[in-house]
């Protein structure tokens, strides 16, 4: 199972970011989301959506081996074991392992699908 994005359909509304933070942290805070929306304006005038591709590079670089996969196939950071070295954050080719000052451990997408259901234009989908 994968969370995919068609950036050409994205309108930059950030509802997905907010939905993600509400689902996982019960907070209204797009800075606590597990996917990324980057606008490129004025030229060319497009939005770029980046989601976790489950490539596993994070797990590979983790020095304490605390990034296993769950039953959906999503890599997740075990915050208990995490030593906050940020090696995974740097290694992620998509830049979708996130940090927030409120938490020591980084966090990443767990394929909950919440964002998909808030995306009006259908830029996000599960495959």
């Amino acid at each position: 199972m994968y969370l995919r994005a068609d950036s050409s359909k994205c309108s930059g509304c950030r509802a997905c970011l907010l939905a993600c933070s509400l689902y996982h942290f019960a907070e209204n805070n797009p800075k606590k989301a597990r996917l990324a929306i980057t606008p490129h304006f004025p030229n060319p005038g497009t939005y770029e959506v980046r989601t976790c591709t489950q490539c596993g590079e994070c797990a590979e670089v983790c020095p304490v081996d605390c990034i296993p996969r769950d039953e959906k196939g999503a890599y997740y950071i075990d915050a208990e074991e995490c030593i906050a070295c940020m090696a995974c954050v740097d290694a992620c080719p998509e830049g979708v392992i996130f940090v927030h000052p409120d938490y020591e451990a980084p966090f990443q997408c767990d394929l909950c699908e919440e964002c998909v259901s808030y995306c009006g234009p259908g830029a996000l989908y599960i495959e």
Binding site: S8, S11, G12, C13, A15, F41, T46, C119, P121
Partner: peptide, 24 residues
Amino acid sequence: TDKACFGCSSPCGKWSHSKKHGVR
């Protein structure tokens, strides 16, 4: 590109490119 305000699932903003005048 369709361009939305915060949280809007029905983006009415239209980002345009005029080739004639070379502007976006």
